[in-house]
């Protein structure tokens, strides 16, 4: 299958996910944005006075965290299930199977784009001034997409072989939620082990930079951003090689 055919298939698969989802619920996209909004409401209600006193525009602070976390969680969970949910194609059709995984990543990426747009809209309406630094957001979103792609590629092939991977990953996502400063502030944790964990958490770093761009303005630490981009690209190439090495064993195990 040549590159052009692969691109067309990727587009068709991505469009299919959207068509199916929009059919299955009356609200279509609204439905997928409802979950982050409910989270936002709950956390805003309960943590406004605890964490909110330390941050200006706590609701936007919260929303950025929720949007980035929700995207990561939805995209990687969909990627994990992708080869199994398209078992027929995985087992019986001849084309590069990463297209199945990437179509889910792309499909979640579209939601991510819209969510971020809504997030900025809310920011403006709650009094955050529009800044030049917002132009950093697309780059951060690309880093996040590369991040979800490599995690998704690895998870999708692990789930072909290990049947309990989805349960394990659900637990991991729950842990990640609390190990990422979504509703609290990192400085509240002191300098112990929790703080170190968060420093090593790639999602926390991306969210941190996104908040810096949206709320504080000013330039982003170029060094960290470049490092994040390079490390994620390296991880992606590593994950892709593992995926391709395991691909010939998908059909008999899926």
């Amino acid at each position: 299958m040549n590159f052009r055919d692969q691109f067309i298939l990727l587009r068709e698969l991505t469009a299919t996910h959207h068509k199916l989802r929009d059919q299955s619920s009356l609200f279509g996209f609204t439905w997928s944005f409802l979950h982050p909004l409910i989270l936002l409401a709950v956390f805003y209600l309960f943590f406004r006075y605890m964490a909110g006193s330390h941050v200006e525009h706590y609701s936007v602070y919260l929303l950025i965290g929720i949007v980035f976390y929700t995207h990561f969680s939805n995209a990687t969970m969909a990627a994990l299930h992708s080869l199994r949910s398209y078992r027929d194609l995985t087992a019986d059709a001849v084309f590069p199977k990463e297209l199945i995984v990437l179509s889910w990543i792309l499909s979640s990426g579209i939601d991510f784009l819209v969510s971020t747009g809504i997030c900025l809209l809310i920011a403006v309406t709650t009094g955050v001034t529009i800044k030049l630094a917002w132009f950093w957001l697309p780059i951060l979103m690309i880093v996040q997409m590369i991040f979800t792609s490599w995690v998704g590629l690895l998870l999708s092939c692990l789930y072909v072989f290990a049947w309990d991977m989805d349960h394990l990953y659900e637990i991991a996502l729950r842990l990640l939620f609390f190990m990422t400063p979504i509703f609290y502030i990192r400085s509240q944790l002191g300098t112990g082990i929790p703080n170190t964990i968060i420093r090593l958490n790639p999602l926390a770093r991306i969210i941190d930079m996104a908040r810096q761009a949206v709320l504080n303005g000013g330039g982003l630490p170029l060094g960290s951003l470049t490092a994040a981009l390079i490390l994620n690209l390296l991880a992606l190439s590593f994950a892709y090689q593992i995926f391709k090495r395991l691909e010939p064993r998908f059909a008999e195990n899926v």
Partner: peptide, 28 residues
């Protein structure tokens, strides 16, 4: 190109037109 059976990869909830393009793309 391998056909394990006719219609593998078609999706019930899509229209005939959408399936033509999806199924066609799967088989290049």
């Amino acid at each position: 190109v391998y056909f394990a059976g006719l219609g593998i990869g078609m999706i019930q909830d899509l229209t005939v037109r959408e399936n033509v393009y999806l199924y066609g793309a799967i088989y290049g």
